[in-house]
Design a protein around this nucleic acid. Structure first.
Lengths: 248, 248
DNA sequence: CGCTCCTTTGAGGGCCATCAAAAGGAGTGG
DNA sequence: CCACTCCTTTTGATGGCCCTCAAAGGAGCG
């Protein structure tokens, strides 16, 4: 059962992440129904797990603040990181297939999350078509993004991967309405390496070069994009000519 | 509207792929309702597309016979292959996110498919809980498998990738009740290379070595597994001791 | 039979991993 | 606040895996 909301409770209806999170496209009355089943969890500390491989699947999680990494330890004992989740993102869908989580998710930072008990969410979605569509959409997005990750690993050089990563993070901050050419990124270089299929040494060398080339810097969890066009070019992203005209 | 079924129509109810395909876990009356919306398509020839990047998303597709590759052409004009679909597999979920297909799917072989109009499938799923669960499950599986693909690309050597690929295909044939140590595989070596993140040259060299080592061979679309244990060892798969005892 | 695409085989080289070691930060307990 | 430890990051030297390039042989198809 959902907890009784206190006067100070921040519900979905007045959460700043509505545009990014699940409520997108829901009318107010439906957001309120969603709000009923959302369980606001106590904050997690760095290193704590939302779930681990083999855990019973019970809930999806929406992030209110902080960063989460989705990862696994392979048979041979090496870590592989599959993605990073920012405020407004929803994760946990890896457990739907077998009612058991196939991957692990842990906090890279102090974390504030909402828990969405899946059975209840599912029942509600049968009555709220837009919510149902949201769930399908988020799951489809998971797979599509994983395949973009595959592209990165298959066809991009180490420099391109790094540039694309920084640019991608910047875009995600932009979507959320934050400053996006200078932001805090609480991810270890080591973890980025494990996400990009590189070694920490290579990441370090590339960041040094990007800094001296005046493209971007990332030191002490602070990212600064100095030359956005150069960054995009390096990432292999074609700049839309019309968009460039608007800038000028 | 669904076509009128002829006396010769093979419906979901008497399809040999029920255990693999969508009807899994449905009672007969529900299978019949699913059958009502399934649209049996005329056969496709090698090279024809089920859909392409940018096509409007309308249906999921279930494969009755043949092999499909899911792929894309990157910005830089290179092909990346994301997966191969065998009889009983369902594909097309890449279109759910934006109502537009993000990838392309084409026949590697003569192909026989069923089309499942998504709107109708979705409506039906609201009334048939097990069908609803099936859809969620298949979508979750897509993402999970894509991440296993990532593992392959990140942490396995070329030999391991090749071994894992052949072993994986063998297991998929096994699940379907076919002979699984000697089977026809209508996939070009070139396409396997594009799936494994390798070049055709490398694939060729590895297959030559696996053949001379007496592990497996793949010539002219015929795969033969000669030493299954060695293949698994090469793929980096730990053999369960109890399972080995049963063999002896 | 001729065309095209796929596959094979060989030679050479580049990108990034590996190994090693030192320096820098973060967290802990005194 | 400092000493201590552990983990992360940096920097350099070396080498290996697999790509690239090249060309010949084979398979499929009109």
């Amino acid at each position: 059962m959902a907890d009784i909301k206190t006067a100070f409770h921040i519900g979905c209806g007045n959460c700043g992440l509505q545009k990014i999170c699940f409520p997108t496209g829901l009318v107010k009355s439906d957001v309120d129904r969603l709000d009923m089943i959302v369980d606001r969890k106590p904050a997690l500390k760095k290193g704590q797990h939302l779930y681990q491989v083999g855990d019973k699947f019970q809930s999806l999680f929406a992030i209110r603040a902080g960063v989460v990494k989705l990862y696994e330890i392979t048979d041979s004992g090496e870590e592989v990181i599959h993605g990073f989740y920012l405020p407004g993102d929803v994760l946990g869908m890896d457990g739907v297939e077998n009612k058991t989580h196939q991957f692990s998710a842990s906090a890279l930072d102090s974390l504030s999350i909402c828990s969405l008990p899946f059975d209840q969410l599912n029942d509600l979605s049968l009555q709220v078509p837009n919510l149902h569509n949201q769930i399908l959409k988020v799951m489809s997005k998971e797979a599509n993004e994983s395949r973009l990750h595959t592209d990165l690993l298959m066809k991009k050089s180490a420099d391109q991967r790094m540039a694309q990563f920084i640019f991608g993070m910047s875009e995600r901050y932009r979507e959320r309405g934050y400053v996006y050419d200078s932001f805090r990124l609480a991810i270890l270089h080591r973890d980025v390496a494990l996400y990009l299929g590189l070694t920490p040494e290579t990441v370090s060398r590339i960041l040094a070069k990007m800094h001296s080339d005046g493209i971007a810097s990332w030191k002490k969890k602070e990212v600064q994009i100095m030359d956005r066009d150069a960054l995009m070019a390096l990432a292999g992203i074609i700049v839309d000519r019309d968009e460039k005209k608007q800038k000028a």
